[in-house]
Design a protein around this nucleic acid. Structure first.
Lengths: 336, 336
DNA sequence: CCGACCTGTCGAATCGATTCGGTCAAATAT
DNA sequence: ATATTTGACCGAATCGATTCGACAGGTCGG
């Protein structure tokens, strides 16, 4: 069943059917009605491949996700979901490509085979070869996170430095003197993972500016590491009264260790940071935190669509600083 | 840059280039070498749309995920990841379609527009209109979970009834007399969600067979509901010494409530169930549980590829019963 | 009353691949 | 020496849409 079949049944030429569908030329009301009736009856829809071939666009965008996808954090997952839904709203399909290191067959296939009109790249490293690859391929793309030299690329990111600094200020306002940052793993920092790096520098600057005592800790992305991290903290830095974290995967472990130690949040210890809203709300007690904005996916899609429509326009970028949502995990420093 | 360009540069016809690429006809070694050199130099790859149009297949599979994707459980997420990676290994791309209820534009587009060679459908209801839609469309598909009348369809599922029964037997062997099932939400059971229904019936049967006392509880898919559920349990059924659950989203809340109540697992309370391995390992203490098999995605892709290759073969299905992994959350019933 | 203009429609070219049938020379068989 | 097979390649048709130029018939103004 193709456009020719529709044309035959409606007694018109193929081009007339096409123009009825696209509206790019006038078609008389009567003819339009007849054609539409046939289309509805047969449930016709243009063949995507034929259309893509002729039009030169696929109405599909690529979403490149980390390969060891089992370890997607809740925030990343939320991002994927919001991209998919935003794309669906714009009548676009989403092609998934798991690729980070050498898994790049799928990445290459998508680019060189012209399977997508544009690409959203997540989990960007400060040095990222995929960006240079996309640039030479001349395919529109948007990165989530930005490289060391982001000029000329279109990106969207969360301003971890500012957010972590805000968390520190918030805690300072509550009278906390000694604050710890629970960062992502040491490996990721070494690998030049932007959020971890920027969180660390934002933390250090805020601590210095306010003349407080800061402790920076790295922590693996799992609950066990989180629990270990809290135990280590209690042993080595007993004067700490507040925690800032960007490591949501470790949070359940932190919470467990806290419960086990009989520490009451926020009476004995304040906890805040940058995490997915769902994570913050599901925590006990609900976490005062800068929620990772769920609309990031939507905005990434918008930015990409702009980029596809006008590839030569100067690239825009967005640096998001969502407000801190006050919930129940921070309070005045207890006087010891 | 297209196949004609390659042909021109290599001084051959387009068909010769095509045959070199596909190997479907003999091409002399010398010519092949020359063509390959040009291809490598220019980094040529066939246009996916043109190829799909001519061949009638897209080398893409569709994965239909639940629309409120923010609520994907870890097990579902693991499944998506394994599908994507298995597909990548088979040089297939994956097109995502968020669709459950009326969000079906993307679902329809994928099917009628012939954008995919086959579809994997997850989160199947006992009555599922999408299955009938796919059947009339004549598109190969595999469902994760099965409908009330699964004959003639190709599916893969976890045998919740048997697994839950095994958990009950395991607990009975340890001397537990009163066992509770923490199921999914009442809404899902009402909606005819297979796993919840089958878990309940497997539980009831095992309890009856062994002559034990069983309590069936519904619980929302979030930590707060899990905590509330445990509190309710302690209040209304204080004699319970063991929990079986298939609700992994509620587990963190259950764990928190347990810690808070000073209950020691497994000394005072045994916990087991059917959850994603990662979830079981990350729990404290690590959960003795039937791990949701991570290879489900791989097998779903295999099944789908079979179905695409031989659409008329009798549909196969797989009912998986992964073994219970003994970890640290179950022990002998304490004598009270 | 005739050329200019508009409306609605059609035919044919095009996108970039695959594939069938045909051709031509060299190799082999009769 | 002629007929037949084989190997290597080419040309053209094809997949299903879009789109441009052309054209018929009607309306309008001068």
């Amino acid at each position: 069943m193709n456009i020719g079949e529709i044309a035959r049944r409606a007694g018109v030429s193929r081009s007339t059917v096409s123009y009825t569908l696209s509206g790019k030329r006038a078609v008389s009301a009567e003819t339009r009605r007849r054609i539409q009736a046939v289309i509805d009856e047969l449930g016709y829809r243009p063949n995507a491949a034929a259309r893509a071939l002729k039009e030169g666009r696929t109405r599909t965008i690529g979403l490149v996700i980390p390969p060891a996808s089992l370890r997607l954090t809740q925030a990343q997952l939320g991002f994927v979901a919001s991209v998919v839904e935003a794309a669906a709203r714009a009548d676009l399909d989403v092609l998934l490509s798991p690729s980070g290191g050498d898994h790049d067959r799928s990445f290459e296939r998508i680019i060189t085979g012209r399977r997508v009109d544009g690409i959203i790249l997540m989990e960007i490293r400060l040095q990222d070869e995929r960006v240079t690859r996309l640039r030479t391929a001349g395919l529109p793309f948007v990165t989530i996170g930005h490289t060391a030299n982001p000029d000329g690329t279109c990106w969207i990111d969360v301003d971890y430095a500012t957010l972590v600094a805000r968390c520190v200020h918030h805690l300072a306002d509550l009278g906390h003197q000694t604050i710890v940052l629970i960062n992502r793993s040491a490996d990721m920092i070494a690998a030049g993972y932007g959020p971890a790096r920027r969180a660390a520098s934002g933390f250090d600057e805020a601590i210095a500016e306010l003349g407080l005592t800061g402790v920076s800790l790295c922590c693996g992305d799992d609950p066990a590491a989180g629990a270990a991290c809290l135990d280590q903290l209690r042993a080595e830095h007993p004067t700490v009264t507040a925690i800032v974290t960007i490591n949501e995967a470790a949070l359940p472990g932190v919470g467990r260790a806290v419960e086990r130690a009989g520490i009451v949040v926020p009476r004995d210890l304040s906890i805040t940071g940058v995490v997915a809203r769902q994570w913050a709300e599901d925590h006990h007690p609900p976490l005062t935190a800068a929620d990772m904005p769920t609309e990031m996916g939507t905005q990434a899609v918008e930015l990409l669509l702009e980029r596809i429509a006008t590839p030569d326009a100067p690239p825009r970028h967005l640096l998001l600083t969502p407000p801190i949502s006050l919930r129940a995990s921070t309070g005045r420093a207890s006087v010891r």
